[in-house]
């Protein structure tokens, strides 16, 4: 038990240190192309952390969606906008203070959390045993995650599809698919004319 915890701890902390380093580098860099690529690396490393937490399906999705599609969308946006961030003029003191206070409050909250990885945590004793026991009987497939996603909580997944569909329509409306008549509403352009 304890040796298992320490083994997990070493891998966890190494991956986590990489994640924090990447996040801090993203904060310090001003080249948006580098930031987009580092965000992809961040997603891939977090997929590794998901594997150590036994969440294979989540790791697959994070690697495909977070490191793949998200990076492509980000690069597409950069191609349509700018590649370089302008230097920050205001002092970072207030945001740092807000983050420190929020973080301290959250850490205070975790002190009452049940121990990580214990089999008798409240989260493990509710419906999860039912899903694990009944999946082979009722659904007949070995992957409990797929069984819950597509069958026990199929309506949740339907709701997810509705959200993705709405977002796709909104993106198409915003970007116009070439149907928009150009840059009539360009405030910056009008300002130059004045």
């Amino acid at each position: 038990m304890s040796a298992g915890l320490i083994g997990i701890a070493i891998i966890d902390i190494l991956l986590f240190l990489f994640l924090v380093l990447i996040a801090i580098t993203i904060a310090r860099l001003r080249n948006l192309f580098a930031i987009a690529m580092l965000a992809g690396v961040f997603s891939l490393l977090s997929a590794g952390l998901f594997v150590t937490l036994d969440a294979m399906d989540v790791a697959f999705t994070e690697a495909a969606v977070g490191a793949g599609i998200s990076t492509v969308l980000m690069l597409g946006t950069l191609a349509l906008t700018v590649r370089e961030e302008k230097p920050v003029t205001h002092s970072p003191f207030l945001p740092l203070l807000v983050c420190a206070i929020t973080g301290a409050a959250l850490i205070y909250g975790t002190l009452d959390m049940p121990p990580f990885g214990a089999a008798d945590n409240p989260v493990q004793t509710h419906v999860a045993p039912y899903y694990l026991e009944q999946t082979p009987v009722e659904i007949g497939i070995p992957n409990a995650v797929a069984a819950v996603l597509a069958s026990y909580r199929g309506f949740d997944t339907l709701g997810e599809v509705v959200v993705v569909f709405t977002a796709a329509i909104a993106v198409l409306l915003l970007l116009g698919g070439g149907g928009r008549s150009g840059r009539h509403d360009n405030v910056a352009g009008e300002r130059k004319k004045d």
Binding site: L5, D54, A55, A119, A128, A144, V145
Partner: peptide, 12 residues
């Protein structure tokens, strides 16, 4: 929160 130490991925 769903991890159990010594457990494996929920693929039966």
């Amino acid at each position: 929160t769903g991890k159990i130490v010594g457990g494996t991925a929920p693929i039966l």
